[in-house]
Nucleic acid binder design. Structure first.
Length: 278
DNA sequence: AAAACCGCCTGTCGGC
DNA sequence: TGCCGACAGGCGGTTT
């Protein structure tokens, strides 16, 4: 599912191909995608406009438009944003929206499960997009220091897995990268956040950054639906240590990997390397 | 504050 | 082979 590395990969792949191209037409095939606008309003504001920049915050993509507008996209579970240089390629079955650049191609939003969203907001008016407005620190930014991370954990009894998934604390982690980071740091997903030692929180802080960086370098993880902005699969699925590997041998110690529901999510871990009780 | 649950959707998979 | 329920898990919302 698209998490920070996947969304960042989509951003980087689209950046050279979707900016400064006049949008000649917008086709909305699934109007509920738009959230806070009617199809008519949306088309009126976007047709004849153009994307000036494309940035990312957490799992959100933000396209700036002329006229102090921003288009905020979220891929949720199965969304794809793919650039097609050839507009004659037939639409995929679950195409929700198309931004048509005429002879310059098209940007298509494809989404099997239709959870994805597009919000058109005045520039910086992120309070209109609640999840974006309340996002926590960017884990790859300079603000995500070890001190900042330890402050997030201090005194909290909530399970570390749940805290890492909380977008208002740290922006962009999802189920895959939380499990991989906890494994890398040797920490059980059910450990109370505040119970981590200084050494453990230091290892986890480093693991989060390393796992995310490596996943970006590998264009993200394609288990099923995720594609880059060029429609290609990522390759980090070949480098996952434990996600989806229940019953296989731990790559570090050889024990049988397990999974269980933690914070409502299937959570993978090594019972030997990641002890619940210390 | 936090956990547990539901709703939003479709495709896939295991069991019978 | 077909049907059926469970499951995948991001986020917003409500309830406990």
């Amino acid at each position: 599912m698209p998490e920070l590395p996947e969304v960042e990969t989509v951003r980087r792949s689209l950046l050279p191909v979707v900016l400064h191209k006049p949008i000649e037409a917008v086709h909305i095939h699934y109007p509920r995608l738009l959230h806070n606008r009617s199809v008519g309003e949306f088309q009126e504001l976007v047709v004849n406009n153009q994307f000036l920049d494309l940035t990312r915050r957490g799992k959100y993509l933000i396209f700036s438009l002329e006229g102090d507008l921003e288009l905020v996209a979220h891929l949720r579970m199965t969304g794809r944003l793919i650039y097609y240089s050839d507009a004659s390629i037939p639409l995929a079955k679950h195409t929700s929206a198309v931004f048509d650049f005429g002879a310059e191609g098209a940007l298509r939003f494809e989404d099997v499960r239709k959870f994805g969203t597009l919000d058109l907001v005045p520039k910086g008016k992120y309070e209109e997009v609640r999840g974006l407005y309340t996002l926590g620190v960017e884990p790859l930014s300079a603000e995500f220091t070890l001190d900042h991370f330890q402050d997030l954990l201090a005194g909290r009894s909530t399970k570390i897995k749940g805290l890492l998934l909380d977008q208002t604390k740290i922006a962009g982690l999802g189920n895959i990268y939380v499990d991989e980071s906890l494994f890398e740091a040797g920490i059980h997903p059910e450990r109370p956040a505040g119970s981590l030692s200084k050494a453990e929180s230091k290892r986890l802080h480093r693991a989060i950054r390393e796992v995310l960086e490596l996943a970006i370098a590998n264009q993200g993880t394609t288990l099923r639906d995720y594609r880059t902005g060029f429609g290609q699969e990522g390759s980090f699925q070949n480098r996952l240590q434990i996600y989806g590997k229940k019953g296989k041998a731990c790559p570090r110690c050889g024990a049988d990997l397990e999974h269980k529901k933690v914070a409502g999510r299937t959570s993978h871990f090594c019972p030997a390397c990641q002890r619940e009780l210390i």
